[in-house]
Design a protein around this nucleic acid. Sequence first.
DNA 1: ATGAAAGCGCTAACAG
DNA 2: CTGTTAGCGCTTTCAT
Lengths: 354, 354
Amino acid sequence: MAQKEAQQRRPSIHDVASHAGVSAATVSKVLSGVTTVKPENAQRVLDAVELLGYRVDPLASDMRRAKRRIIGAIMPEFESEFFGQMVSELEGLAEQRGYTLVAASSRESEAREKEILARMHDWRVAGVVLAPVRNEHGPAAAFMKANGMTGVLIDRVLADDAFDTVSADSAAASAEVARALVGMGHRHVLVVGLGEQAATVRARLEGFRRTALELAPDIRIDVVLCESDVGPLRALLHDYFSKGTERPTAVYSLFLKGTLVALSEFRRRGWHCPNDISLVGFDDAEWMQVTWPAIAAVVQPVREIATNAMEVLFRRIEGEGGPPTARLEPCKVLMRESVGSPGSVPHSGGGDRQ
Amino acid sequence: MAQKEAQQRRPSIHDVASHAGVSAATVSKVLSGVTTVKPENAQRVLDAVELLGYRVDPLASDMRRAKRRIIGAIMPEFESEFFGQMVSELEGLAEQRGYTLVAASSRESEAREKEILARMHDWRVAGVVLAPVRNEHGPAAAFMKANGMTGVLIDRVLADDAFDTVSADSAAASAEVARALVGMGHRHVLVVGLGEQAATVRARLEGFRRTALELAPDIRIDVVLCESDVGPLRALLHDYFSKGTERPTAVYSLFLKGTLVALSEFRRRGWHCPNDISLVGFDDAEWMQVTWPAIAAVVQPVREIATNAMEVLFRRIEGEGGPPTARLEPCKVLMRESVGSPGSVPHSGGGDRQ
DNA sequence: ATGAAAGCGCTAACAG
DNA sequence: CTGTTAGCGCTTTCAT
């Protein structure tokens, strides 16, 4: 037999009503916690609900309401630990308030990002958490603005004049990385990154540069940056090291993919961290503490970002006014074995134990 | 001004109808591609749609239809590359057919899994792609069965008598790993894994054992397996190596987390792959080819699993009958530098180039 | 304290 | 070819 036929018609609110001998309106009241119902009737409703296994149809319910209890989340991708954790956190937070999270991935495309947003608008979502592909000036944010949608911008954004923003404090973290590297004696650092249009990537670069130059005015900072995909970056980095310029003593990657590309390039050349070159990357990942050497990384406060984003989003949904806020959450910097003093012997021991 | 007030009321189908001077029904027909509409009127409708920026409300539309154009996806977690890719693929596939994917994570909890499924049922999803926490015998699958839901089971499942299943051919991949390790001379292998209740983990273990014993009847296969979380596994593995039994020449991890735990344990003991011990893991990850040594891994055919799962799911949604099918997609085994012959010098060179 | 009535935005059956 | 009618399952006035 086809599964299709097994699809039972679920009991509706009217079924419950007739079983309880009341009207649908009363059932609705009981279920939404209105107290003006005679206790006896309320009980009969509850019994009928139990008996029939009735559950409200959230879509039908939202239909009649002003706002639908759906939150949209748009992430550049689902494949990385960072955005995976983010979706997971947002999901839990939305659930806590009785909302459903509908997540979609823009696949690093601004065109797709806008399309998804339009679809979310079609769904009449109550609010959107948008992690833009580039920054706050993309077509998606413009669309949200134009259509009066409520939303929060996270991650690749620092501040906006129309929406609240929440992201990691990239500049501060980069400054800390700079302090660490300069403190260890590095005077020639390569900064490598993807997405030069991303506000945060620029903040990461500038945060590093400013502090490094402050502490060591003679420091040499090379920069290999490209927009778009990881492929070109790989080529650029290869060229950089092939040019025969003096080899930097450390590489600071502003992006997870950059860290991978850097490692890959080191492999190809047979360089080992930290003897031949040091490496720190923005974005931590589980594997970074089990490899040898363990890779130093800036840990973004995913949970804090998610929590604050949802908090401010729900305040807006509930109609709170006021100018947009811009939050920056502090990162943690984990200096692991991939970083050492230039020209020194590697230090021994494991990565961070847990 | 509060963002809330900026929320414009979107044009409804009636707005379009009156602008075009036709009825709502006609608008609906034009938009759903019914050809029996006078071209002139159709054009006026299209113009009005354009003018007003009208878009169908998918929820309202689904309300009236028999089945809602929503596919539910339930994954054990969102944080890993594997499930991230899976959600991404499923999202694209659902979109292609005009469906929306609503993904949720069970967080490795069977209780939560069932709750989510109930919520999906409340949403009247047309179908569900379920990657069960353990196997096909969990409460979630039972719930689906009991409620006549349409669905496919993927990943941690081999076959089922009620639902179609699609997963990686774990046994074949494990056999290939066995052939490789035995072929290189390994005669003492530790197999380590999480989730002994998962059908696939058992298949991976047995696939390995059978082939290994066939090729080398004298081989010693130790097994460290535990249900539940990664913490206990770490402890078990530590105990295993501390017991002073002879050290195996290779470790085969049946699960990504197991690979991480194994690496972490090797670190702690100062063992290097492949000189001190070889390592192969089920599940590939991007980082595995950039570390030194690159980590050998079994690559699951995510895209194929997703594609076939969606294909069979939509066939069921469209009412196709017949007994449940069970598909197994072949994996690829990438023997990288973490594997070598026992007691030999490490081979030189990079990981897989791209 | 309760129910009848009126929709939310849309589609499907059926007359015309 | 088109419009009317009747809902999908629910919530919300508004009388009673």
